[in-house]
Every structure is written in C-alpha cells, then in structure tokens.
Design a protein around this nucleic acid. Structure first.
Length: 460
RNA sequence: GCUCCCUUCGUCUAGCGGUUAGGACGCUGCCCUCUCACGGCGGUAACGCGGAUUCGAAUUCCGCAGGGAGCGCCA
C-alpha cells in the first residue's frame, strides 16, 4: 500500500513555524516511504480565509522547498462532494437535522458550565421525527456508548469514551460543511493513509474516526506531533520573535537550516545534529519523534544557519544572499562576487541579512565609525599608513600573499606589530574595526578602492 | 469545571531494568590569532515529587504536582 500523507493548513494567516514542522514531517514520511504528499487548503471558513493567506502559504512551502505530489486542493471547490456524503449519512440515519436555535444552545452551554459539566449538545433533536420548517443544521449521530480506540504512532494507544463526545455539527444553517466533516471526507477520498498533524487535534480524532466508520471508510494511521513552544516555554507568539516562516527568510536564515532545526525539534537520530535532505529522507522515522512539546531556541538556529552558510553549495547561498542584498538596496554589480563575499563572511556572521549589512563597504562608500577612527587612526599610526600607501601603490600584483607580505614588511620597518598597522588600515578601508582578514579584505576591495580610502584616511 | 495529552542539563535531545546518565546549542576556561569570527582542547549543568514492583529503576506500574490542548453553526 502506498503511503499518502497530507498537509492541510487553513488559509487564515501565514505559514507559521509549527505548521512548517508538521508539513516537513508529512513530506519526509511520504518521501521516505516513496509515497505521496498532498497539500490541501482547508478554506471552508469563508469569513476568515483569504487569497493572500493562500499565497503566503504556497510561497513559504516553495521557499522551504517542500514540494507536493498532489494539490493544492481547495475544500471550497468540493462542496458538492461534501453534500453528497452528508446526504448519504442523512439517508442512513447516521446524521440528523437539528433545529435548535443558537439561543437555546447558548443557554444550554451556560447551564452546563454553571453545573461544572463539560459543555456539549444534549441531543435535543436527535430523535425528532419530521423537522418543522425551521432553519436547521446537520449533526452527526455519534455513538453514545462504547469507546473509540486508536494506536497513535507517536503516543501509543489512545482510548476515548463515546459518552464524552456529542453530536457535532457537520453542516451549518447555510448548508456549508464544517471542518471535522470535510477532513473526514477528504482524507477518505484522497486515500490518505497517514494523518500527521498537531496534537491539538487529538481530541478531534475520535469524532473523526466515528464519522469515517459511518462513511464506511478505512481508517488512516494517526500521528500527533506535539506543539512548538516559545523560548519561555509558553505558547509561541510574536513576543518571541518570528512565528511566520517567511519572517525567518527576512531575518536571513537559509531554508535548509530552518528545516534542519525544525526536524531536530522533536525528532532525533542518536546524537546526530546535521542532516542533509537526502539523509533525512533516508533516516526519518516516526519511532523517534518525541511526545513532549519543544521550546524554540533561536541560538541553536543561528548556529545551524552559520553551519549551512559555510557548507552549502555556494550558489545556493548566493541566491539567497542576492535576495537580501536586493532588499537592502545594495547594488552588487561593482565589486566582489557574492561567492567571494560568502567565503569571506560566512564564518563571522549568523545570518545572511547580517552578511549583507556587513558587506556594504565592498560596494558602497564607507561610513566611518567615529569612535573607531579616533581610536585607530592616530598620529602614531600615520607614518605606517603613509608608508603602506606607497608600498601598495607600487605593488606589482594585487593578491593575498603579496598584500600580507607587504603589511608585514611595513610593520617591521616601523618596528610595530602587525596588528598596529592592520587595525588602522581596516578602519581606513572599511570604516570600522571588524572585517575579514585584512589581506582578504583588501583583495575583495581592489586596489583602487583601497588606495582611495587610504588616502582619504591619511589626509582627513 | 470536564476530557485528553505531556514531564532527563537553561534549551533541543540520547537512553528503552545494571551507564562515571551521552551528545548538541548556550555560557565559560585555555590554545590559535591582524579585528571579528572559525577551529581545537577542557569545564558548567538534568532524570518534577511520593509510593509500588525488582537483587537492581531515568527506564515498568499507581498516585500527586506542574505545564499544555480540546470542550464553536473556527480550523
């Protein structure tokens, strides 16, 4: 039997980090089992669903490089099918029309809450013969006795009493179907074999199983993944920084770094921390997914991001860096290539955004940090800088080795340590005290820019 | 309130009846060094509590506590 998984977000906002991890797990499992991964947009809430959100989710999936074999399916395009399934249940007496008013339901809930009972529908219309000509909803006739039992791949055996469940609404007064019903119909129609989703759906599962059975469907295997918490252990929210996947792009993370981070949040393979995509597909399994919720830790993501900036194919990194350069309006046509920037900067920055920001001086006029200038370009440093300028002007070639040697020679002649000349020079050509090794920096800058800036530093 | 889920270093985790409880991020000491970093070698720090089973429990069972989710004509 081919494995079929699905990711089914509702388009009421961007793709957030928890959803991305669920999608990743679904995607990985399908890939590993050589099955199919389906994307389904659950947009039955017409009020809250927007095209903007759909696009945002699709964009995020694309950026993460999580491709789907089928879809995106849209539930709003399947209303006929839901109607058909509902009619079937109605006809078989597995669902019924309920004419209870919202007021009655509210009163019922209030009463139950006051009595410290779990709010639920009381089955008022369950056995009514013919409904009057009033607006109605359709409710699923949930079994009242017995238990629903299923074996969750992550949690193990889960058992629910039917007596805890009530007759949920599967079609609204306006006849549109509701979530729990559309999920069931779709999972069945799309032959989903593995439902991998957030553990906030655990409580929906027994109801869905009951409906699946009423529909005569084969039950899928369930895997409920725990939530991602904020750094403070509380629910993830704006407070902790980014929630949306695309915010991580804006902050300068590589998709592979984010994915690697996400997969290790809850899943493990011994002590291994770094996984290529192929490795993940090969090694991923449900047996090693953790049951407990995990707190999001930005520091570790930074570490992974740097690792990926250093080790990913340079064109992959360059493509993403170009996006950031563009965003920061840095014109990189005149100056070192992005590949050169990456090899010079990757090990000293945590994000691509930082890399772009800190590489400005390779392409644009320097902006000097007054304090650094004051501290480094001192009267004592001037003789060395002047001597250096002359040496650099006459340099037959402009390469790292020669530059390094020149610096050392000048330092020796002035009887100072290399640092005493490298730092003033660094400030002179980059504006501040931090940059790649000075010889490399000069190579990237080129002779013209270097001399021009050096001259300015000496005379101003 | 009711139902369900969860609980190993600060964080992510390994562990599946016998380990000096391992790794990673972070923090930190030393080395390297032209700055910032990278890297190398160390250090720091954990089984929520109480019972039970067992020769032996982080591992099994039962309570408790703490945290979370669900209880919509939302998904």
């Amino acid at each position: 039997m081919t494995v079929v998984t699905r990711f089914a977000p509702s388009p009421t906002g961007f793709l957030h980090i928890g959803g991305a991890r669920t999608a990743l797990f679904c995607w990985l499992y399908a890939k590993k089992m050589k099955g199919k991964f389906i994307l389904r947009i659950e947009d039955t809430d017409i009020e809250r669903s927007t095209q903007v959100s759909v696009d945002a989710i699709l964009d995020a999936m694309a950026w993460l490089n999580l491709d789907y074999d089928e879809g995106p399916y849209y539930q709003t395009k399947r209303f006929d099918r839901y109607r058909e399934a509902m009619d079937q249940l109605l006809e078989e007496g597995k669902a019924y029309r309920c004419t209870c008013s919202k007021e009655r339901l509210e009163a019922l809930r209030a009463e139950q809450t006051a009595n410290k009972e779990k709010p639920r529908y009381d089955g008022h219309c369950r056995d009514k013969k013919k409904g009057e000509a009033k607006p109605f909803v359709v409710r699923f006739r949930n079994p009242q006795e017995g238990v629903v039992e299923f074996n969750d791949l992550i949690r193990g055996k889960l058992i629910f009493q039917n007596s805890e469940l009530d007759d949920l609404i599967i079609a609204r007064t306006d006849s549109t179907p509701t979530y729990n019903f559309t999920v069931v119909v779709d999972d069945n129609d799309m032959k989903v074999t593995h439902v991998i989703r957030g553990d906030d759906h655990i409580n929906n599962t027994p109801r869905q199983i009951n409906m699946l059975r009423a529909l005569g469907a084969t039950l899928p295997i369930y895997s409920h993944v725990s939530m991602i918490l904020g750094a403070d252990g509380k629910r993830l929210s704006k407070r902790h920084g980014a929630e949306g996947v695309m915010e991580y792009r804006e902050d300068g993370f590589l998709p592979d770094a984010l994915l690697n981070y996400l997969v290790r949040l809850g899943w493990s393979h011994g002590d291994q921390e770094i996984f290529s995509r192929d490795e993940l597909i090969q090694l991923f399994d449900m047996d090693h997914i953790n049951k407990s919720p995990a707190a999001f830790n930005l520091e570790k993501l930074y570490w992974l991001n740097q690792h990926y900036m250093k080790t990913s194919p340079i064109d992959v990194v360059a493509k993403e860096l170009a996006w950031h350069m563009d965003r920061l309006k840095i014109d990189t046509t005149c100056g070192p290539s992005l590949a050169e920037i990456i090899s010079a900067q990757a090990e000293r920055v945590k994000t691509l955004k930082e890399m772009a920001e800190r590489s400005r001086y390779f392409y644009e006029d320097v902006s000097y940090n007054d304090e650094s200038v004051k501290k480094n370009i001192t009267p004592e440093a001037l003789p060395a800088l002047t001597m250096l300028q002359e040496a650099l002007t006459n340099l037959p070639e402009w390469n790292k080795e020669l530059l390094h040697k020149t610096l050392e020679d000048v330092a020796e002649k002035c009887a100072i340590k290399l640092g005493k000349i490298a730092q003033p020079l660094r400030v002179a050509v980059t504006g501040d005290t931090v940059s790649p090794p000075i010889d490399q920096t000069l190579v990237l800058l080129g002779r013209e820019r270097t001399l021009e800036r050096l001259k300015r530093a000496i005379f101003d």
